[in-house]
Each structure stands twice: as structure tokens, then as C-alpha cells.
Amino acid sequence: MSSNWAAEAAAVFAKDWRCELRTRHAVATLALFAVTTLVVASLVLGPVGNEPARAAQIVPVLVWLILLFAAASGLPRAFVHEEESRTAIALRLAGRPSAVFAGKLAHVVTLVAALEAIVAPLAVVLFDLRVADGFAFAAALGAGGLAIAAATTLLPAIVAQGRGASTLFAVIALPVLLPALALAVAASRAALVGIAGGDELTLLLLYDGAVVVAGFLLFPAIWNP
């Protein structure tokens, strides 16, 4: 079962990336949205990096809000589109629910990582940031990104079957993501100024683990009508 399962998950992952590369929806909207907001914020704030304490207060909040809204505005489309174009039925026949979830999750994780790879260096340059602990900063980005990805894979599957999916997504996803976001901001802030933020990072990883496990447990029930 395991090789079949992996093949199914890999097929879903490959299919999602192929669709993505054909339409370039994420590249066109998510990345541009993130870059535009970041540029506007840096225009208004200026080189806050000159005052490290102030930068550590403001910039992590901005970066995580931009990542959250970029993810929330574009990523749920994947499932909603599957339901609208009636391809969800084919997908239900083609793979086991857990394999579909794993494939979708892997796709969203890579998308969020790509988004972060654009946003984080750009934020460092535009705000003239001095990151005291680069490794901890990257770890915070990774763990926070996984939280956003896990929630934006599981919850769209729920809202896709209801009315007014995109508005509903924002309503049900924000309370789920809020603790992760607060932890991610705290962990990035600690990394920027170079104080130990191990507690926040551990809690964030715990959150990631809990939501991913919950995703694998709940997805079969959500997915199969």
C-alpha cells in the first residue's frame, strides 16, 4: 500500500503544480500581492532597520500579515476550483483521501515556501534589517509557513462544499491561524534581535504537528461525501 499511496500523493502533487504552471495563478497574484504590499509598507516606514528595536517590533508583524493574506487570498482556490469544475469527483475516484491530502499539502507547502523565499529577503533589503540569528529566523519562517500551509489545505476542503466559499474561508481560517501567527511573530522577533526564542518555536512546531495530524484524521471525513 505504501508505494501506491506515495505514487498517488506524488501524482496529486505533480498535477497541482502542472495546473499551477499552466495558469500561473499563484505566481501572478500571490507573489505580486505580497511584493506590492511590502513595497507600500517600506515606502511608508522607510529604513526602520536603523533602529533595531523598533524594526523588531514592526517588521515581523507586517511580514506575517502579508504572508497570511497572500496565502488566504489565493491558496483556497485549489479546492474550490476542484468542486466548481467538477474535477473533485475524478480526484475522489483516483486516490485515497489521505494521499490526496498529502499531495495537496505538499503542493501548498512548496507554494508557501516559494512565497517566503521572495518575501523574506525582500523585507530584509527594503527595511534594511539586520537579522541577528539567521538560522532561527529561517526556522521561524519554516515553522510558521507550515502552519499557514496546513490550515490553507484543510479548511478550503470544508468551505468548498458551502456557499460563499472565499468569504467563509476568511471567517473560519483566521481564528485557527491566529495562535500560529502570534507564535510566528514572537519567534521571528526573537530571531531578529538575537534573543533565545526557543519556547515559541517549539510551541509553533507543536501547533504544526497537531494541525497536520488533525488534517490527516479529518480530511477523509470532509472529502468523502
Binding site: 462544499q161 495562535p179 470532509i222
Partner: peptide, 22 residues
């Protein structure tokens, strides 16, 4: 019933973070 039950169970996972971590 099915979807709100899934969201309710997710509440069991998320609420410890809201009650105790936040």
C-alpha cells in the same frame, strides 16, 4: 453535520493553544 463536526474536532486541537498558549 459532517463538515461542522470536522470543524468542531479541529476546535479540540486549536483551543488548547487559545486557552493555554496565547
Amino acid at each position: 453535520a459532517r463538515l461542522s463536526a470536522a470543524y468542531g474536532v479541529l476546535g479540540l486541537v486549536v483551543s488548547p493553544f487559545l486557552y493555554f498558549v496565547l
